[in-house]
Amino acid sequence: MKPNHKGRAQIFANPVLERLTRTHIALPIFIFIAISVGLIYYGLTYGFIDVAEAIGLFILGWFIFSLMEYSAHRFIFHMDTDTPAKARIQYTFHGNHHDYPKDKERLAMPPIVSVLIASFLFFVFKLLFGQLVFGIVAGMLFGYAMYLFVHYAVHAYAPPKNFLKTLWIHHSIHHYKDPDVAYGVSSPLWDYLLGTMPKRAK
């Protein structure tokens, strides 16, 4: 199906479930920035991390998120659809976005799903890094919020006349020219490192 600049896909027949698949982009961005700030504040206030650790771990968490963003986009959202079940999962999570890239209410996962995933990641990273989790996960969640902002901006607005225009071009190539390249949205870093940069950008 060619990308459609109008309309939206119907994912569920149930109207309640269908409504839950849509969200205004400001809501998850606000939620995850607030949680990120709260984690840093909590970690500093109760002495789990100091200021230098908070800054370093925050940057590390943001870096980790950038790899997670790339990996999820490449290997989950663009999984092989060699069975009907995989095809359904892929379309529910991402395929509908490629069919209707201008549907502004489906540019982010529903907040409840994102919060559940973020909670799971917090406990996983707590087991791995102990009290350092407050800085690392704060950076990861802030990275996710910035990803949401960039993803919304490149679909909703014309590209700016500055260096950020690269992000618009990069993501447009993924949508309208070759879906097997340019998986990074908030940054092309991992496309450079892992060999999925578009040919025109090389």
Score class of each variant (00 low, 15 high):
residue 160 P to L: 10
residue 70 Y to Q: 00
residue 91 Y to P: 00
residue 119 S to N: 09
residue 131 Q to R: 10
residue 67 L to A: 15
residue 71 S to D: 10
residue 60 L to S: 09
residue 155 H to E: 07
residue 157 Y to V: 14
residue 97 H to C: 02
residue 60 L to W: 03
residue 113 V to A: 11
residue 84 P to T: 11
residue 101 P to V: 06
residue 134 F to D: 01
residue 108 A to N: 02
residue 151 H to E: 05
residue 67 L to V: 09
residue 113 V to Q: 06
residue 130 G to P: 06
residue 149 F to P: 08
residue 62 W to V: 03
residue 90 Q to Y: 07
residue 109 M to I: 04
residue 67 L to N: 04
residue 70 Y to D: 02
residue 154 V to Q: 03
residue 91 Y to K: 13
residue 119 S to V: 08
residue 123 F to R: 05
residue 161 K to W: 02
residue 146 M to G: 02
residue 124 V to L: 10
residue 97 H to A: 00
residue 97 H to I: 01
residue 149 F to Q: 11
residue 62 W to N: 02
residue 160 P to E: 14
residue 103 D to S: 08
residue 75 F to K: 14
residue 106 R to M: 06
residue 77 F to R: 14
residue 140 M to G: 01
residue 68 M to H: 06
residue 120 F to A: 12
residue 153 A to C: 13
residue 159 P to S: 12
residue 95 G to K: 10
residue 63 F to N: 03
residue 105 E to H: 09
residue 118 A to S: 07
residue 95 G to S: 12
residue 77 F to L: 15
residue 133 V to Y: 02
residue 138 A to N: 04
residue 99 D to H: 13
residue 122 F to Y: 08
residue 87 A to H: 14
residue 90 Q to G: 13
residue 141 L to Q: 01
residue 119 S to L: 12
residue 116 L to H: 07
residue 160 P to W: 14
residue 116 L to K: 07
residue 149 F to C: 12
residue 103 D to G: 00
residue 151 H to P: 04
residue 93 F to N: 12
residue 70 Y to T: 02
residue 128 L to H: 06
residue 100 Y to I: 04
residue 154 V to T: 00
residue 149 F to I: 05
residue 143 G to P: 00
residue 76 I to S: 09
residue 140 M to K: 00
residue 103 D to K: 03
residue 104 K to S: 09
residue 131 Q to N: 11
residue 143 G to F: 01
residue 101 P to N: 10
residue 94 H to N: 11
